[in-house]
Amino acid sequence: MGLAIAFWILAIVAIAGALGVVLLKNVFRAALSLILCLLAVAGLFITLSADFLAAVQILIYVGAISVLIILAIMLTREVTQGSPSGRFRIPAFIVAVLFFAVVAYAMVNTNWQIATAPPLEPTTAALAGKLFGEKGFILPLEIASVLLLAAILGAIVLVREK
């Protein structure tokens, strides 16, 4: 009961936030709306007993990525007028609707498997075991970190003054 109420509130907030990102003219407010949406998604993770994931969602998406988006917006002129709509307005709308239809169709028609086991408590130790333990995902993890490092080095090379 409590979980259902929490889910519906968070779901509505998330969708309202996402709509705000698209519909608001003011780009700064759109970014704030995106933050609201991401926070609501973190709340959804909590209702699914994925506390670690929720904290990481807030830390990375709200604390880091949104902050960078806002920083980029601050460097933009005439924020309040928003971006003038280009020639691609209607094609972009059609593509977005098509994409939404495909995703919605796939989600409704997939036979989701629902675990009967109770949620794991505490999650962090189990996650650490899966990531770093024996027969875990240590190799993909390391590859991902090397990939990120390569991306950082690439960015430094690109912006370095000659």
Partner: peptide, 14 residues
């Protein structure tokens, strides 16, 4: 919370 200190880092970043 099991994720105590991580929670603090996440929340304070807001």
């Amino acid at each position: 919370l099991d994720i105590g200190i991580l929670y603090i880092m996440a929340v304070s970043s807001v």
